[in-house]
Simulated scan of single mutants.
Amino acid sequence: MAETPSRTGSPTTLDTDLIIIGGGPAGCSAARMAASVGMRSTLIEPDRLCRNLYRIPALNNVLGGYTNGPGLADSIAAELQSTELCHLELGRRATQLSASDDHVTVTLDTGACLTALYAIVATGVGPLQPRDAPWITAPSSLNLPPLWQADANDAEGRTLLVLGGDRTIGTFLRAHPTTDTRLLVAYPESDDYKTGEIRDDPRVALRPVEHVRLRLADDAATAETMDRSGKRQTITADAVFLSIGNAPTAPSGDVVRDTAGYCLPSAQHPRVIIAGDLRSARFQRIMTALGSGSEAALHAYYAAKELLHARHLHLG
């Protein structure tokens, strides 16, 4: 799969069969699946492989017996590093993706360009801050830590205000089942469906809100909340953490985004395949990321086979 016919009929020489942008579970799974069917790939990741898994202290929904993120991440990274058909470009960022009729081109932050038959975009999402949430009023320069960074010893016996109902709350509670802390979770209507797994934990007090105005002091935090009926209430806590979710981080170029920044797979150029968390906020799970990465690689494989078969018939 080293060449593909160009619009003029002359072959275009490609650097690899498949370019994978993003080295999380979806990207790594795509590279492994591609290798299993004989496709060469180049995987681009600005950090280390599966970097976000190292931040997850407890797992309960992943096959293979893994109970924590670092264990799973180490296993995935070791397997991928021994995969001969996958070339790793770690410490590099994809800054531009261009798709044409017969190939894709990815520009790196070094200025180098790579070409391939297809690209899988699996860059996932990055953390939001209060200024990114229209239902939170806070100083524009304020940066708060996500809940997964909270230290269990520091949380012992304290009340934590958690802004947002994202699933990191459930992860924190499972990772620290004996920590005696109280979580006041203020969350908007869009997070209603995410709170099911934490509703029955006695350490959690759910506060459905329309709006939150946050004030911080050296020794405490105060939030003036308005619930969905218009009733106002003041909440005081020892510290504030975020669980308001993440924002999609697709590269610039020929990637189609919806109004929230997510990339619907069916809306993309035929040579651009979306995998993992970038597809939708509702599919941000490790298992779905692994599955979608494998599916994306098979999509590219079968599409490439059809293209090469057609070319051979034409030349014959």
Rank of each mutant, 00 (worst) to 15 (best):
P145T: 05
A116D: 09
S294L: 10
D132L: 04
R311Q: 11
A239H: 14
S6H: 04
L214A: 03
R32H: 08
L49G: 02
G91E: 09
T234Q: 13
H309S: 15
G22C: 08
D109I: 03
L264A: 14
R32I: 14
L264C: 12
S280I: 07
Q96Y: 00
V62Q: 03
A239C: 14
A34H: 09
M1P: 08
S190F: 01
P208I: 13
T234P: 05
H87W: 06
P5Q: 04
L88C: 04
G64M: 10
K194C: 14
L18Q: 13
R32A: 14
R182T: 15
H314I: 04
D254E: 13
T105R: 10
T179A: 10
P57T: 12
I169Y: 00
G64Q: 08
G64H: 07
H314F: 06
A310H: 15
D191K: 15
V106C: 08
L142D: 06
H312Q: 12
T83S: 14
D154L: 06
P202Q: 14
G170V: 04
R48D: 12
A223S: 08
P5S: 04
D74P: 06
L290K: 06
L307C: 10
R158Q: 11
G27N: 12
C28Y: 01
R228N: 10
V121W: 03
L163N: 00
S98L: 05
G170Y: 02
F172H: 03
R182S: 15
D166M: 01
V104L: 02
S243M: 15
G27V: 13
Y262H: 09
Y301H: 10
M287L: 10
L161R: 00
A26D: 08
M226A: 05
R131D: 01
T4H: 02
P11R: 09
E79R: 15
T16W: 09
V125R: 06
I235G: 06
L315C: 10
N52D: 07
V256I: 13
E210Y: 03
T171D: 03
P139C: 10
L80I: 15
S292Y: 04
A303D: 01
